[in-house]
Amino acid sequence: MLSELRAEHVSKSFSTICALDDVGVSAPAGRVLGLLGQNGAGKSTLLRVLSGALVPTAGVVLLDGETSSPSFLRRKTGILFGGDTGLYEELTAHENILFHGRLRHVDDERIARREYELAEALRVSEYLERRVSELSTGTRQKVAIIRVLIHDPQAIIFDEPEAGLDFSAVRTVLQFLRDQAHECSRIVIISSHSFGDVLEVTDDIAILNHGRLTSIVETRKLTEGHSLQDSFAELERLAIGDA
């Protein structure tokens, strides 16, 4: 099992736009790291670099202290971006999961076992034989989570994991992610615009502002003995940093 995913001095530019500027952050196994920041702060870009979906302009991404290529990172991570389920609507949920598992070179027996475990945890077993076109937005999102985790990745990277989910489903998904970190000792990194959800599920919070990392703080230090309003005010202060 992997013990840490880390970015060191990572920068990423798109033409004249600097999306990330000398960012360094560590995500240890067994803890949930949350990324917070305004739109355009660089959260999604950082997640894509950490997952191998984007190559940094400068800096490196390391797994357990070893510099890792984008292709290696893609094999070791499961990444999902809110609103982009990657599912084929004409196929059933099960057919989608099976297809993507085979693409990941997972044998059918292992796919079946993993699909059962994840579907039970996310409470979607009864929907596996339905076409995706017939599923609600929230159920599609849960099926998409199974799709990206079917190869049993050691690092889970989710951007807006609660997208399209109702209150009850959000609680289920957040608890699932917490369990993946705390009980299964996986690396879990999430980004969200929902301040309350981030406080609920994370152990550590990294704050980005205009492509720069302004602060990393243990979540409990923000929440113990503080109201939600006070915690939010402190996060706003940390987000400003020295930018």
Rank of each mutant, 00 (worst) to 15 (best):
V173F: 09
D166R: 08
S125W: 07
L199A: 05
P153H: 02
A121Y: 08
L165H: 10
E160N: 04
Y127N: 01
E218Y: 04
S133K: 06
E120F: 08
I187E: 02
Q175C: 13
Y127K: 10
V143G: 07
F176S: 05
Q141R: 15
G211W: 03
F167D: 03
V198E: 08
H193F: 13
L213M: 10
L128F: 09
F167P: 15
F176Y: 11
T219S: 13
S185D: 15
I189S: 10
L213D: 09
A144G: 05
E115M: 15
F195S: 00
G164M: 07
Q154H: 11
N209R: 09
E115P: 00
K221A: 07
S215V: 00
E218H: 09
R171K: 14
G196F: 04
I150K: 05
D203L: 01
T202V: 08
I157L: 15
E134S: 14
A169Q: 15
L208Q: 04
R114P: 00
E115T: 13
L199W: 00
T172L: 13
V143F: 04
R220N: 07
V217S: 01
I145T: 14
G138Y: 12
R114F: 12
L118S: 05
S168E: 12
D152H: 06
L213W: 01
L177T: 00
